[in-house]
Nucleic acid binder design. Sequence first.
DNA 1: ATGGTCGTGTGACGA
Length: 258
Amino acid sequence: MKIVTWNINSINVRLEHVKRYLRESAPDVLLLQELKTEKFPAQDFENLAYHAAALGQKAYNGVAVLSKTPIEVIANRLPGDESDAQARYLEVETGSLRVINIYAPNGNPAPGEKFEYKLKWMKRLTERLHELLAKDISFVIGGDFNIIPEERDCKDPKAWKDDALFRIESRKALRTLENMGLYDAFRIFDTRPGQYTFWDYQAGAWQKDNGIRIDHFLLSPAMADRMKSCVINRDPRGWDKPSDHTCVELTLNLNNKN
DNA sequence: ATGGTCGTGTGACGA
């Protein structure tokens, strides 16, 4: 069972990229972030035998789940703030698996209003995930967390010191989730520094491999026990007219106990 | 680097 997360930075510009990825890699579930439009081309994916659930918004944000099995939407907003209309959270059930897709707030400039929104959003997320753990619902959450977990997850920690993605408050918010018992799937088997999921379009960041690791999967304990692999696939970042993010690929063994 | 690049929507703004 392969679940993949990918911030595509506009579904309109990247539609052919996503279709190519589905054909070549055939994930069971694909989580997409930053659709940047209200309208979602579900038919294109249904033609490739995927079910689709999307939450769009004009010009900003937007998340979608594609799956080979039917999708039941459990929630399309993060509880805790009725006034928050940003399309950043999609919780679904597909193939008897609970999957949560997030596009967490960037939070820059920090400090400031946007940073406060980021921290509050992470607190709301913590409460929601705590609720699932308390109900003994195992789950996979993936997406663009917009948080660099540690120094080894960026090229030059000093350059990121005061950025909303690396400030101590943001890293603490992610660590709080890990302290609840969730696992950073990528770090279960891979401890190497310099494993990035995002490279800025500017200043030749991709060519210089000046990136950051901000796209993550967190697994509830039962899911962590079932993990076979979690790898970063750099290929799509090297395609023509790429997204500034590449995808993270998670493989679970949901059939056998070992 | 007061730089540099994209996407949206056609202005700045967000990332």
